[in-house]
């Protein structure tokens, strides 16, 4: 089995230092766990290969680097290289980190290569007769187990197993090869967005009406109005009463199913 892991030049969310995005490191781990005998290589399209050299220390032995000028769409170059190598599985992170973070590249690749795409995978295993068993995250630990016949593009979800530790010695031994490629596909249409420093915005408070006044929105935000209000305190209640109160409260916030409804 030949597995390509797409690598992007990420930036650390806090420090802004150039790093390998965590979800791509997790994708490497998924690839490494899939089959010991498979050929795994990293693929990066960008101006510099040094940006992804970190991936060598996290389980990859070899990275192919396709030179693409900064700001240019990497998809055509990636499509050309992937069409040449024809991997059975292409792994990517669900979103890049530090760029536009739109998560469109895997979709564009899948379309151009006419491969199916399975998003948000947290576990992968080889099934019988060449199929792949993929577990997709549905959030909160729920999964969808999909049996799919390759070749396939898979994006990795952050709930996948944590990345392997970085090993300096391995990074030293791994190699990055620059490959020359003639792009085949046309670049995707881009949006000309205006940029400015990020401004944190208040999240819309659940239950607050859109047309309410500022005072009403404040009350909804601080939870002063509802019966569940802020900090109800019961001092030395009868245990039975306490149990009833707790259950009512848990039902109100919706984590425990109502008694009359059958469990779903």
């Amino acid at each position: 089995m030949r597995i390509a892991v797409l690598l992007s030049a990420g930036l650390h969310p806090v420090s802004g230092a150039p790093v390998l995005p965590r979800v791509e490191a997790q994708a490497i781990r998924l690839a490494a766990g899939l089959a010991a005998s498979s050929e795994i290589f990293g693929l990066h399209a960008g101006p510099e290969a040094a940006a992804v050299a970190e991936a060598l220390g996290q389980g990859l032995d070899r990275i192919e680097h396709v030179a693409v000028a900064a700001g240019e769409d990497p998809v055509p170059a990636l499509v050309a290289r992937l069409a040449e190598r024809a991997p059975d599985l292409i792994l990517a992170g669900r979103r890049s980190q530090g760029g536009d973070e739109s998560g469109l590249v895997p979709y564009a690749l899948a379309r151009a290569l006419a491969m199916p795409l399975m998003p948000d995978v947290v576990a992968a295993a080889a099934a019988e007769d060449g199929a792949l068993r993929l577990d997709q995250s549905l959030g909160r630990g729920a999964l969808r187990r999909v049996l799919v016949r390759g070749p396939v593009v898979v994006t990795c979800h952050p709930d996948a197993p944590a990345p392997l530790a970085y090993a300096y010695g391995r990074a030293r031994r791994g190699r990055v090869e620059t490959v020359a490629i003639a792009p085949v596909a046309t670049p995707a249409p881009a949006l000309a967005a205006e940029e400015r420093p990020y401004r944190r915005r208040p999240r819309i408070v659940k239950g607050a009406p859109a047309g309410g006044s500022a005072a009403e929105r404040l009350k909804a935000a601080t939870g002063e109005s509802g019966p569940a209000g802020s900090g109800r305190l019961l001092i030395q209640p009868d245990p039975e009463d306490a149990a009833r109160e707790i259950l009512t409260y848990l039902r109100q916030i919706g984590v425990v199913a109502a008694p009359a409804e059958p469990k779903t």
């Binding site: 389980g59 944590a162 990345p163 392997l164 530790a165 970085y166 391995r170």
Partner: peptide
């Protein structure tokens, strides 16, 4: 263990990374 094998204890991987 750490430099050649990346075999840090599981919970130490995060802080070191």
């Amino acid at each position: 263990e750490t430099l050649e094998r990346g075999a840090l204890p599981e919970k130490a991987v995060g802080p070191v990374t």
